[in-house]
Computed example of a mutant assay.
Amino acid sequence: PNEYMDDNETNSTSEDLSYLGCVQINIPQELFLALGLISLVENILVVMAIFKNRNLHSPMYYFICCLAVSDMLVSVSNVVETIFMLLNDHGLLDVHPGMLRHLDNVIDVMICSSVVSSLSFLCTIAADRYITIFYALRYHSIMTTQRAVAIIVVVWLASITSSTLFIVYHTDNAVIVCLVTFFCITLVFNAVLYLHMFLLAHVHSRRIMAFHKSRRQSTSMKGAITLTILLGVFIICWGPFFLHLILILTCPTSPFCNCFFRNFNLFLILIICNSLIDPLIYAYRSQELRKTLQELVLCSWCFGL
């Protein structure tokens, strides 16, 4: 991602940027490292909690687990890159430029895989909640464990493959167009499903209550609300990055756009914050997951003593 910033930052002179009152926010590398480590620990705990608690062994939580792994990709890539940069800046690491380029490509693939898989799993979770609400009586026959696993495998294979191709052909504007288009399509898909869910859920709740399934309906709607929050946080945190990509296509030489480009590191911080906030949302919205996370933290603390 840094290549997008470097290629466009030089398109305007410093005099133009100063005239526009362009402000560049400097973010210390230590902050990247601290947020990355916190996010990594949080998402590892979420994955461990889902594996540990049998009550969380359901397709929805499998998809949430994959979403946490997607967030872990961002955290790991950020931590590794920041450590290398800090060691290099302090003269503690002498790395060949070729190796740095290879490392940068691997990190870019991880970040790209994260965004593609995150968007895909948000869509998958939305579809799962939709089936739960509107086809409650047939849910277990529609969304079986085998189908959930197959969906997970397909999403990861598609994410890794497409991300590798994106990085290989990163100089082609078609790559940016594909990423932005995918982002917009997934947002529209989620918006349509959630709108339909919230507008018509009360009609289906009456039918489900007639079959004494009111508790299931309540749980399903709670899950839909949780995932609406997740989607909103994703848009807020990743939105500036995708706006950055759109501006690269539409106004790469404009001084106004270059003002926006200069704060690319701020957009990266927002992306890391998304990985940090998601586990807090899972824990806040799910009592079962929150309880398991508390047990894991207490056990870790006891063993640490």
Rank of each mutant, 00 (worst) to 15 (best):
S220A: 12
I229V: 03
H102F: 07
G91L: 10
L270Y: 02
I277N: 05
I25A: 09
L17E: 02
H140R: 08
P28V: 09
S58H: 09
H57K: 12
I229C: 07
S113W: 10
N8S: 01
F261P: 12
T219K: 01
C178D: 11
I111L: 15
L31G: 05
H140I: 14
L280C: 14
N55P: 03
I83P: 08
A283H: 01
F260Y: 15
H140S: 14
L249M: 07
V188K: 02
F267R: 04
L87R: 04
I235L: 06
I125R: 02
L293P: 06
N78W: 05
I107N: 09
E30I: 13
L31W: 07
S70V: 01
T181P: 02
F182N: 12
E30F: 04
D71A: 11
L100P: 01
L293W: 03
D16I: 14
L92F: 15
A126N: 00
I281N: 02
L193F: 02
L86P: 08
F51M: 04
W238R: 06
T132R: 11
I125P: 00
R138F: 15
L86C: 04
T132D: 12
F260M: 12
A34K: 03
T164P: 01
S117M: 05
A126K: 03
L293I: 14
D7N: 06
S75R: 00
K213G: 00
I107C: 09
E3Y: 15
E42W: 01
V23Q: 04
